[in-house]
Design a protein around this nucleic acid. Structure first.
Length: 664
RNA sequence: GCUGGCGUAGCUCAGUCGGUAGAGCAUCUGAUUUGUAAUCAGAGGGUCGGGGGUUCGAAUCCCUUCGCCAGCUCCA
């Protein structure tokens, strides 16, 4: 007589079933519909029988529907309504991809194939690279395998036997994983899908026929184990969804993001360019981008002054000796432009502003009464980035940081940090971001060779950062080991209009440079003490922030940032004078206004300026001229408004001053 | 830097089998004077990224170099 076990279901009911019953059996017993919809199960051993195996079972675990249940279990059947099931579904999609690849290209060796945030990939090793045509073939083959509805079958093999099988096939990567993830006496878990056998802990959906919507997206290189010294594998990316509809929505979202690409909009709106003749990663700000940059710089400089920073300027090239003192020559050399030999010495372009600010600090004897000293600069730096990593405005070789260094006493540090964090949030808010994520990056005490400074320094600094975040009631994630080598830091990531995260603002402790440069101040008791140094950048880089702004607004900047805020559109030649008159009034209050007096139809002008995303188009014809009004066409709004010209002047003036989004 | 793809007019792109360069938009000129997202006509504009090679002949095939794109690795 078979033993029986108890299975507890989410509705609280309990079933008594024979030991070895599977989740799919239980699903069938509940309803055939559920059995059809079921993809995977979530199980946790019930009660305190105390013999739950270590590791697995202590927490709810996802398991195959066909896995026999051996103990009393708390069971949930997951269907296409559960996000957790989607991850499994995508992992199974990756297996489907690998199975199809092996059918078509049996010589291929397998790496690994996990689910990702929005899809999956599988890494392959093959002497001849896959082509885009191969991708089509693979996708067709996957379709066939879906039609055949092949089960994802799990087996357990003695480790030696499994290793031998993979070795026999030349699957060196699988052998590596087996050796790394299992112990000699263990049995190893494998899944078979047709000809394809994978070392995999699972779980998987029941069969290939359950995959309803998938698409292969692209092929790219990826280093084996992520190490660039290793051979390069071919990674095939794809995505899959529970329904075609979901997938279409996702692909549309990707298209949407493409339309916001700052490189595309930068060209369409004539904001900036990168010139082949000048070199990669070097940005030319065109007149329209230049206006936005000026707004960004004005805003920042005004805030610097308001918040007690001193504005400084430091040279772009400095002697090599300085970089030796700062230590950049040693640990940062591979990111610096090469030295240039002059008569007296070798000089290097600056990759960072810190040493310059330090020299200013050090130029005079500082009293504790002078502190904090806050030196701010919009400092242009040059970094040698490897050729494959440049990306529009987001990763460049020459860029301007809104960089400041604060030198203060240990007692002052918490207030300074708190001010920086608030400053950062004000920046981001004023530019139209209102969602953030904050991270505290700390050191890893077990990895001392990558961090300078004493335990005491690290602990004190980390504690003050934590204290500040708590006192400001900011939620944050702590990320151990992610600190700069010279001190812990707070990073603020913003969330853009379509939910993407960007890391720009950073506030960092620096134990290294004050030491290296022998910075000091005279304390109250007359002794010389080392100041605490904080390094902070809020835009991060003006270029990168600009790129993010372009994508956030999809080029439709709020009026205060718009290169052209208003265009006057006279209906015919006889209205040009009136248009000029209104334009003069707008210009007088600082509005960036243009008069489009070209010999074009009004419709064409509206179309062009609308495409240029000008926030306000003012059409003036006989009616307006007679009444002294303007007809206001607001970006993104169908209906136009007529109002006295003077009223529009006042309204837009206020709108710009308030950095507001809409008139009134 | 690595793997793969791409580079044709200012922009977006077409160009078959190797046979001597094409469209739309933009620009210029002329006509037209317009009521809420493209008025019509004409003209000009190219070392087909650069260099080398194969060939009677190269945008097309090969080599090389520069740049761009996706991803990896690294980062503000």
């Amino acid at each position: 007589m078979a033993e029986s076990i108890h299975v507890k279901l989410p509705d609280g009911s309990e079933k008594e079933v024979p030991k070895g019953t599977t989740a799919i059996d239980i699903a069938k017993s509940i309803s055939p519909r559920l059995a059809d919809a079921a993809l995977v199960a979530k199980a946790m051993p019930l009660g305190s029988n105390g013999d739950a195996p270590a590791g697995e079972g202590a927490r709810p675990t996802l398991i195959d529907l066909t896995r026999p249940l051996e103990k009393d279990t708390d069971l949930r059947i997951l269907t296409d309504r559960d996000p957790e099931a989607l991850e499994v579904y995508r992992h199974s999609s990756a297996h489907l991809l690998a199975a199809a690849v092996l059918e078509l290209f049996p010589e291929t060796k397998l790496g690994h194939g996990p689910a990702t945030e929005s899809g999956f990939f599988y890494d392959f090793y093959r002497p001849t690279p896959f082509t885009p045509e191969d991708l089509d073939k693979i996708e067709k083959k996957m379709q066939e395998l879906v039609q055949q509805d092949i089960p994802y079958a799990r087996e357990f093999l003695p480790r030696d036997q499994g290793l031998a099988e993979f070795k026999n096939e030349g699957d060196f990567m699988k052998c590596h994983f087996i050796e790394q993830f299992t112990k000699p006496e263990e049995k190893i878990s494998i899944y078979r899908t047709g000809k394809f056998t994978d070392f995999c802990r699972g779980p998987h959906i029941p069969s290939t026929g359950r995959i309803k919507a998938f698409k292969l997206l692209n092929i790219a290189g990826a280093y084996w184990l992520g190490d660039e010294k290793n051979p390069q594998l071919q990674r095939i990316y794809g995505t899959s969804f529970f329904s075609k509809k979901d997938m279409e929505a996702h692909l549309k979202q990707i298209e949407e993001a493409k339309k916001r690409d700052h490189r595309l909009l930068g060209k369409q709106l004539d904001l900036f360019s990168i010139q082949e003749l000048a070199g990669p990663g070097l940005i030319f700000w065109h007149p329209k981008g230049g206006i936005i940059r000026k707004e960004m710089e004005d805003w920042m400089r005004e805030q610097y002054v308001k918040r007690g920073y001193s504005l400084v300027y430091t040279p772009h090239v400095m002697r090599r000796q300085l970089w030796q003192t700062s230590g950049h020559e040693g640990y940062y050399a591979q990111n610096m432009f090469d030295a240039m030999e002059l008569d007296d010495a070798e000089y290097r372009l600056k990759p960072m502003n810190c040493p310059g600010h330090i020299l200013i600090y050090k130029d005079s004897l500082r009293s504790y009464r002078d502190l904090p000293v806050r030196l701010g600069e919009l400092g242009t730096v040059y970094r040698y980035e490897r050729s494959g990593v440049m990306h529009g405005l987001l990763r460049v070789r020459g860029f301007t940081q809104d960089d400041a260094h604060i030198f203060c006493t240990p007692e002052q540090i918490e207030k300074e940090i708190a001010d920086c964090v608030e400053f950062a949030r004000d920046v981001l808010r004023d530019f139209g971001f209102d969602q953030f994520q904050t991270e505290l990056s700390t050191w890893n005490p077990d990895d001392r060779k990558n961090f300078v400074g004493s335990d005491e320094q690290w602990n004190r600094a980390t504690q003050s950062l934590e204290k500040v975040l708590k006192s400001l009631h900011i939620e944050y994630k702590t990320i151990p080991g992610e600190a700069a080598f010279y001190g812990p830091k707070i990073d603020i990531k913003l969330v853009d209009a379509i939910g993407r995260l960007w890391q720009l603002s950073t506030v960092q402790f620096d134990f290294n440079l004050p030491q290296r440069f022998g910075l000091e101040y005279v304390a109250e008791d007359g002794t010389r003490k080392q100041p605490v140094m904080v390094h902070r950048a809020l835009y991060g880089s003006v270029e990168r922030f600009f790129g993010v702004l372009i994508e956030h607004y999809a080029g439709a900047f709020p009026a205060w940032l718009s290169p052209v805020q208003t265009v006057m559109i006279p209906i015919s030649e006889r209205h040009v004078d009136y248009a000029n008159k209104v334009a003069a009034q707008l210009h007088a209050v600082g509005v960036r206004v243009e008069v489009d007096a070209r010999n074009e139809k009004m419709n064409a002008k509206i179309r062009e300026h609308a495409l240029q995303k000008v926030p306000y188009l003012l059409v003036v014809g006989d009616k307006e001229e007679e009444a002294g009004t303007v007809n206001v066409r607001t970006r993104g709004k169908e209906k136009t408004d007529t109002m006295p010209a003077a009223e529009f002047v006042e309204k837009i003036k206020k709108l710009i001053a308030d950095k507001a989004a809409t008139l009134n």
